[in-house]
Structure formats: structure tokens, C-alpha cells
């Protein structure tokens, strides 16, 4: 990244700034010159068909991969060089499966949120308080000694959110977090995300369920190798971006969850 470009990112004040990013796995192009900004406090819903590069874009945004071309900045720094791990919370695609057989308690998982700051040494009073507050905040305080693998899918999602909150994250990234979670728990889960977003947490969410995204997100990006749409959810449903991204046969959502 040139110093000039870095300056531009800071001046826009974006939390994440993706500029003309291209990425391919070997010979298979996945992203083609994508540019998108995530402002502090945004709730960005990232949609697109399977294999459209959503997860790759999220990885690039978080600096977990490096683009072949273009630049990504995170909190005003080049994403790959950014090292304030506690500011980023991440809920993986298979988070509902994670730890199903592993004997690990809710508290043990939430405590991981403090690890970037406290890789060795005793937890301070502040560390312990952050863990307690985070569990209270998402309503799992009474589950603290339960094994994560023996919780319901919806409860398990809250554990991962609590881990991010315990770290004091400014940015929460979620990759299809509610796959395999029942409809009622999903509603509650997205309600929780909405509340946390309203309290200032920036959220980037990959979700295959477009109805959910248009309900809860404040900004939608529709992706299929290229960016087909980036803007307001109410505008999104009126454009033909979805049909274009998903292919001609696809009709715009009929959704009744």
C-alpha cells in the first residue's frame, strides 16, 4: 500500500476499506476488482450464490488472506499487518459444529476472548469481569459450566458472540452463523445482533437467507466474483442486482420466515 492510499483510507474513516481487490485460488478467479467500505457502526450483510467469494472476501477483510491485487485496510492499517487481535471477533461457518465432541465449557470458550491480551499469566480482575459481563450480555451466564457440545445450536452461537464481546471487539464477523439452527433461535440470534449493532458494534455478516439480511442489516453487498450491489436494503430489493448475481433464472425473494 502506498502512503497516499493509506492516508485516503484514514480520511474516509472506514473501519474496513477494500480497494480493487482481486483474488484467485490457483487458476480459479474468485474475486475480480472488488471495492467496498465498511463504516464504523455499520451492519453489513454479504449475500451471493454458493462459491461467489463471500467467505474469501471476509477472510481478505480480516487480513486472513492476502489479495493477489488491490489493497485492504482494517482500522486504517494494512489488514495483514494489523495485530490488535482483541478488536476482531469472528464466528466461523462451522461454529455450530465446533466442539461438539470436545469437552470444553462455555466459560472456557468465552475466556478465549481475553487470550489475545493475556496469552500467559493470571487473569486480572478486569479480564474476569469482561468474561462475566459478556456472558450476561448474551444471556448464557447460567450455562457457564456446561459443555459447549451439549448446548443447542442457538445457545452455542451466543457463546461465540460472548467470546467476541469479552475481548472488547469493535468488529464482529460472522460467516453463515445460523446454518443448522432452528427458525425461532435464528430470529432471537439476529435480534441480539441488531441490539449489539445498535450499541455500536460493527457487524459483517455472511448469510444465505436474503430475507434475514434485508430485515436486520443496514447495508447490503451482493457478490458473485464482482460486486453487483452495495447499498441500502430497501433499494436492494427493488433492483435486479440479485437476479443478475444469481443468474437469470433466479427470481427475487419470496420469503416467509
Amino acid at each position: 500500500m502506498t502512503p497516499a492510499a493509506s492516508k485516503a483510507d484514514e480520511s474516509t474513516g472506514s473501519l474496513i476499506s477494500v480497494r480493487n481487490v482481486s483474488f484467485s485460488y490457483g487458476d480459479v478467479p474468485v474475486l475480480d476488482s472488488v471495492s467496498i467500505d465498511v463504516e464504523p457502526g455499520a451492519f453489513l450483510g454479504l449475500v451471493g450464490p454458493n462459491g461467489s467469494g463471500k467467505s474469501t472476501l471476509l477472510d481478505l477483510m480480516l487480513g486472513l488472506r492476502r489479495p493477489d491485487d488491490g489493497t485492504v485496510s482494517l482500522f486504517g492499517e494494512p489488514a495483514a499487518a494489523f495485530d490488535d487481535g482483541e478488536r476482531i471477533g469472528y464466528v466461523a461457518q462451522d461454529a455450530t459444529e465446533a466442539g461438539r465432541d470436545m469437552p470444553i465449557t462455555v466459560r472456557e470458550v468465552v475466556r478465549m476472548g481475553r487470550y489475545p491480551k493475556r496469552l500467559v499469566g493470571r487473569f486480572s480482575a478486569e479480564d474476569r469481569r469482561a468474561v462475566e459481563v459478556a456472558m450476561e450480555q448474551v444471556g448464557i451466564a447460567d450455562l457457564d459450566t456446561r459443555r459447549v457440545g451439549r448446548l443447542s445450536g442457538g445457545q452455542r452461537q451466543r457463546v461465540f458472540i460472548a467470546r467476541a464481546l469479552a475481548s472488547g471487539a469493535d468488529l464482529l464477523a460472522l460467516d453463515e452463523p445460523t446454518v443448522g439452527v432452528d427458525a425461532e433461535s435464528r430470529e432471537e440470534f439476529y435480534g441480539l445482533l441488531e441490539d449489539l449493532n445498535a450499541a455500536g458494534l460493527t457487524v459483517v455478516l455472511i448469510e444465505h437467507d436474503i430475507g434475514v439480511v434485508t430485515t436486520y442489516a443496514t447495508e447490503i453487498a451482493c457478490l458473485n466474483r464482482q460486486l453487483y450491489f452495495d447499498g441500502d436494503p430497501s433499494e436492494f430489493v427493488e433492483t435486479d442486482a440479485l437476479a443478475a448475481a444469481y443468474g437469470k433464472d433466479q427470481h427475487v425473494l419470496h420469503h416467509d420466515h
Binding site: L62, L64, F82, D83, D84, G85, E86, I88, G89, Y90, V91, A92, A95, A98, G99, M102, I104, V109, M112, Y115, P116, L119, F160, R163, S167, A173
Partner: peptide, 13 residues
């Protein structure tokens, strides 16, 4: 890393 390697990577471990 054992429990959730991707999240650990995102947390800059």
C-alpha cells in the same frame, strides 16, 4: 487453536 483455529487466526494468534 485446537478448538477454533480460524477464530484464533482472526484474533491474531
Amino acid at each position: 487453536v485446537t478448538f477454533d483455529a480460524t477464530a484464533a487466526q482472526a484474533a491474531r494468534l
